[in-house]
Every structure is written in C-alpha cells, then in structure tokens.
Design a protein around this nucleic acid. Structure first.
Length: 433
RNA sequence: GGAGAGAUGGCUGAGUGGUUUAAAGCGCACGCCUGGAAAGCGUGAGUGGGCUUAUACCCCACCGGGAGUUCGAAUCUCCCUCUCUCCGCCA
C-alpha cells in the first residue's frame, strides 16, 4: 500500500511512477485524492462534535452530582441531538474510508528509480549471464521424455488424481525432489545466514492482504472449505508462495532495531489456480498448479534495502551455480513487475530440452509497501516507528529447476548425471534407466 | 466435539456507568545523589489518525474483534475470535 501522505504531497511523481507500469493505475489517483480530501473534511467535523459531546457529558455528570436534575435533562436532550449528527457523519465517514482503503489497496507499488522503463518481458535487460548453453553430441530430450523413460514423474496418474497441472513424482523423481529441497534449505541456512522456518500451508486472508495478493488477485488462490457446509469457505487459502505466511510472521508488531536484519528461509509447496492461463505452456512441469519452492524473506532497515536485494539475488544465483546450470539474470522493466514490488530481478535457467530459459527465481524489494499493509514496524534509535523494507526471493522454485537439471545433465545413454554438491542429498551420482 | 474460566499498557494486576486525562507494583529511559554502583528521590514513557514547519501543543479513536444500550461504556447486552483447565476423539 502506498503512503497516503506521500500521494497527497507528491501526486505528480506518484502519477508518473504509476503510469510507467503501463497498467493505467494512475487513472484512479484523482479518485484517491478526492476521497482523501473528503475524508479529512468529514473527520474534522465529526471529531469536533465528539469533542463537544465529551465535554458536555462530563458536565452532565457534574450537574447530576449537584442534584441539578432538570438542567441535566435539558443538556441530555441537546447532546442527544449531537449524538445523532455524529452517528450520521460516522456512517458517511465509514463509507468514504472503505472506498479510499479499497482504491488504495488496489494500487501497485511505485517502481524504483533504477528500474528501466518498458512494457513487456521483452524490455527486460539481461544484467548477468553465468555459464553457457550446454552442448550435446546427441539430440537432448525434453524433460517430459526423460521423466517417462526414467520413471521420475507419472504425468497421467498425477492428472488422474487431481486433474491437469498436478504431478505425481515417483521413484528417483520423488527422491530428487526431496533432495533438492534439503539441498536448498541447507545451503541458505548454513552458508547464507537464513533462519529456517516452516509455516502453515493454509493461511488467512490477512496474510494474503499483507503481501499484496488480496484483494486484487483473489481469483488466483485456492480457497479452503473446512468441513461440509459450515460456511467457512473463503476464510482460509492454500498458500501461493511461502512469502505470504513468512513475510507476515511479524505482522502487527513493533520490532527493535537490533532485531534487524531478519532473514528467513522456508520450504513450502505453492498452490496456484492459474486462472486464465489454461492451455498456455501447460505441457509437462513448466506451469503447474502445485510446485515446491524454498523462499527467502528479508526484513531490513530501509537504508539497507537495495544492498540486501543484491545479496538476495546472489544467494539465489549460488543455487544454480552449484548445480552447474547456465542462467541469466534479468532486471524487470517497469511494465513487467509484480504488484507489490519496487524492483525485481528474475533468474532464468537454460533448459536445453525446451530450448528456452525458464524463470526459477524472482527476487524483489517491496520496500515498505507490504510493511504498511501489515503494520510491521521497528523502533529506530531516535525512538520513532519506521516501516522496514521487506524483500522476497525464490531460492528457488523447484519444478522448473528439476526440468533444467535433468535436461542439462542428461547423457547419451539416457542417464542423468547428478552435480557433485547434490550427490550427498540424493545418495547417488547418476540416475539410470 | 462437550463443560467451565478468562482476554486491561513491556509484564503482573486493580477497576462492574461519570475527577479513569486507566490505580498500584515490577521492568524501562533520563536526571539527582555517588569515587563508581546499588538503594533512595524526581521526571518521563503506548498505538493509529487529525491539525501542524514540528517526532511541540491541542483534538479524536483505541482496555481481544464487531455490533448495541446510554448524555456518557474498560465497566451493561448480543455475536465472533483466541487462550487456559477438564472430558471425549485423534496422527
């Protein structure tokens, strides 16, 4: 959520930054400003009436103590009228505040000044490349073929169980998935200084609102029904990313400055309805309704936000380097960024069997956008409450990493060579048919 | 799932309709005292919003959340959530 005071004081800058996203959000800015103005006018009026009522009620108490009952009755009648006006104004004010909050909560974050202008993913500059595209003396197979030959994933039966977009990992495939999760968690906790947390996979609305998933992207979430028909549908949701619960761990708290920076690493499955994306790139494991991910979350002082973002990206890149996977880092342009983010790097790993790069990590600094939504603050050395920057990054998403891994390290005999750092976790150096 | 008890500031805990602008204690910060400390004494200290150059003053709201009664609600009524104890069920 944007700071209303900032919107009020720098409307032109806010308008320009919103416009740079190219989603037309700046069109709603005038409504926000008008509602804000209305709110403050109504607030001034109702507050002065309340002050008057408070004074009068106190006087009535004094009159009654002095047994001046008739005078007290007269005053009561007067205050009753004030009360009626307050009730009416409060109702008006409530409507204004609801509309203002709703509008404001649907406005995306402002892109940081260092974010390149652009409209689509084609405008994202590549900021870094590591390794080179794997060369093969044979025709590399796509992961779907590899999975079937090595019995790593049973696509048909996954679909039988839960519909398209759900995977049944089998044998070495299931074991590889588990090994990757453990490899990632150990890497980030032992070498990168993150504290491991394991959050609930079913979460409340407040978590979804806090990170900016709700109210705008409600149709993307799976809602959970508790029991048969007790009306609880919609209160709880399957998490779309561990970012949602983990970033909210300290919601509605005032941390000490010494608590920062906070760094969490969390494994979770991620559930995404992908409404409207049916039939687009749905083959195999590239786009699915459920995938595993290790997510990294940081809560830091604003002055350290962007240094921490660079470190976060480096932590995610380390994963791909250790697994010997060629990748590139791109900086998302203004038009391609997510709702809550002020600046985002994506890591795209090369998948030889696909002949394309796959997004396996997205690392963002959301600045204070989420902290404001969830009322997360820390007390600084001057005793003021400050909104920290909240960062999130995939470290990394698994189904696609799995794809890049087996496609990159496939060998002529149909086996998969396992990169050395992963071998202790999997218990083998090669997966054979 | 059933029965009971409870939710007040950083913590403990008083307050059951009006000087409560929420007592008191502990803890905290600063000052005095001291060679230094402890003790003692004094002062201060919550969150959000409005006004404002202001993190000054003043005003509004906040005693788990929401609705209601009243001139006036921490206090009375209703609903919800959560915590604790006991019972049942259960990986």
């Amino acid at each position: 959520m944007l700071d209303v005071k900032m919107v009020r004081e720098q409307p032109d800058r806010v308008r320009e930054r919103l416009a740079s996203r190219g989603a037309g959000d700046e069109a709603r800015l005038d409504d926000v400003l008008a509602l804000d103005e209305e709110r403050r006018a109504a607030l001034a009026e109702v507050e002065s009436l309340k002050a008057e009522r408070n004074r009068s009620s106190k006087e009535i108490g004094a009159l009654m103590a002095q047994k001046k009952l008739e005078e007290a009755e007269t005053r009561k009648q007067q205050v009753r009228e004030i009360g009626a006006r307050i009730a009416a104004l409060d109702a008006t004010l409530d409507g204004i505040e609801t509309r203002r909050h709703d509008l404001l909560s649907r406005l995306p974050n402002l892109p940081h000044a260092s974010v390149p202008p652009g409209r689509t993913a084609d405008d994202n500059p590549v900021v870094r490349e590591w390794g080179t595209k794997a060369e093969f003396a044979f025709d590399p197979l796509p992961h779907t073929e590899l999975c079937q030959r090595l019995r790593l994933v049973d696509f048909e039966r996954g679909t039988k169980l839960s519909g398209s977009g759900f995977l049944l990992y089998t044998g070495w495939g299931a074991r590889l998935e588990r090994a990757l999760i453990q490899f990632l968690l150990d890497l980030h906790t032992r070498e990168h200084g993150y504290t491991e947390v394991s959050p609930p996979f079913i979460i409340g609305r407040d978590c979804m609102f806090g990170v900016g998933q709700f109210p705008k992207f409600e149709d993307q979430a799976y809602a959970v029904r508790e029991g048969e028909d007790n009306g609880s549908l919609g209160k709880l949701y399957l998490l779309p990313t561990a970012e949602a619960p983990v970033a909210n761990i300290h919601r509605d708290e005032i941390l000490a400055e010494a608590d920062l920076p906070i760094r969490y690493a969390a494994y979770s499955p991620c559930f995404r309805a992908e409404a409207g994306a049916a039939g687009v790139g749905t083959r195999g494991m590239i786009r699915v309704h459920q995938f595993d991910k290790v997510e990294l979350i940081k809560i830091v002082r604003p002055e350290e936000g962007y240094d921490e973002l660079e470190k976060l990206v480096a932590n995610a890149e380390r994963v791909l380097q250790l697994l010997g996977l060629h990748y590139r880092a791109v900086l998302l342009c203004t038009g391609d960024m997510g709702f809550a983010s002020a600046k985002t790097y994506d890591l795209e790993v090369w998948a030889p069997g696909q002949g394309q790069y796959l997004e396996v990590s997205s690392c963002s600094n959301c600045e204070d956008f989420q902290a404001r939504r969830m009322a997360l603050r820390y007390k600084n050395s001057e005793g003021r409450n400050v909104l920290p920057h909240i960062l999130n990054g995939s470290g990394t998403a698994l189904a696609r990493l799995f794809v890049a891994l087996i496609e990159t390290h496939q060998q002529a005999d149909g086996s998969i060579r396992i990169p050395e750092p992963l071998q202790p976790f999997l218990g083998t150096d090669v997966i054979r048919p």
